[in-house]
């Protein structure tokens, strides 16, 4: 079996994925996720190491490593680098065949990618230099409310009268929230307002590439069910989310690695795979 790896060093978290190809096709063998922290190089090494351990192989069994994400140039053991834009498109094409639009929301980036029939990037747009409309915005809002990041999505689904959040500024959203709290608004209505504000901003971003079904959401924020629903509301369309959407960049990178080893394949499914112990 040929084994290849993708390591996605994001602003918040670092993800590694191993894929293997044998006669049966391509399988995801393992994945790992750790906080990036201050030492980007170490984070990449650790994620890769954990990923190999989870698959029960040694690092030398891995034929090729593609690095992606903002820290891609800090991956000392990587053979080459690619942007996460190409990798998310590639990953989504493989795991969710038929994907034509990727909406990727990460810690400090939001992007929309138009994907061609063979997983190629047709067009992409990203948020401008501020963190409005990204994971950071949600994290700030959750913090002001004293809520955990994992709680805000389910909470917002209970909203009945979402508030209007006018600002998209990650810093000013705090004062908006505080003023709603002081008016006695319910936390679920406030959080739903926050999600809708981001969804609308993301929609205007995504409109600049042609939004075509299938729409697949990737990145860490895809774990937030409230965000997925809010996006579906403003888009008026269904969004596909795989359980491990935040690994999509690393999966794409691993697939490019595999191609580098001479494998060619169309698409696959997310099979059962070993999970590292995490941090």
């Amino acid at each position: 079996m040929r084994i290849a790896a993708g390591v996605d060093v994001g602003s918040t978290q670092t993800k590694a994925v191993l894929v293997g190809a044998n006669g049966d096709g391509v399988n995801v063998l393992s994945r790992s996720l750790i906080d990036t922290g201050a030492n980007v190089r170490r984070a990449a090494e650790k994620a890769f190491d954990e990923c190999c351990q989870a698959a029960g192989i040694s690092q030398s069994d891995v034929g090729f490593v593609v690095g992606t994400g903002y820290g891609r140039y800090n991956i000392s053991f990587g053979h080459t680098q690619m942007t996460e834009i190409s990798c998310h498109a590639r990953g989504a094409h493989f795991l969710c065949p038929g994907t034509r639009t990727v909406i990727d929301m990460g810690g400090q980036d939001a992007k929309a990618i138009g994907v061609g029939p063979s997983g190629e990037v047709l067009d992409f747009v990203m948020n401008d230099k501020c963190a409005a409309g990204t994971g950071r915005f949600l994290a700030n809002a959750a913090e002001v409310m004293g809520l955990g990041l994992d709680d805000i999505g389910p909470l917002s689904l209970r909203a009945t009268r979402p508030v209007k959040i006018a600002t998209v500024c990650t810093v000013f959203v705090e004062s908006d929230i505080l003023s709603y709290l002081s008016q006695g608004k319910r936390p679920e209505d406030i959080m739903e307002g926050v999600h809708l504000a981001i969804a609308k901003r993301t929609l205007s971003l995504a409109r600049r590439v042609n939004i075509e079904p299938l729409i697949t959401m990737t990145g860490g924020v895809a774990r937030n069910i409230g965000m997925v629903r809010a996006l579906e509301t403003v888009l008026g369309q269904k969004i596909v989310v795989t359980p491990d959407a935040q690994f999509m960049g690393a999966v794409g990178a691993a697939l490019f690695s595999l191609e580098k080893l001479g494998e060619s394949f169309e698409s696959g499914v997310w099979r059962d795979h070993a999970v590292s112990s995490g941090n």
Binding site: M82, I85, S86, S118, E120, V121, F124, K260
Partner: peptide, 29 residues
């Protein structure tokens, strides 16, 4: 951020040249 966008753009142009074969992009490092 600027580099990321420029790299992604050229990756996509490269990919477009080989759409059929999912070519892996060779880039000078």
């Amino acid at each position: 951020q600027t580099k990321n966008r420029i790299d992604a753009f050229f990756e996509s142009l490269e990919h477009a040249k080989h759409t059929a074969g999912h070519a892996v992009f060779e880039r000078s490092r």
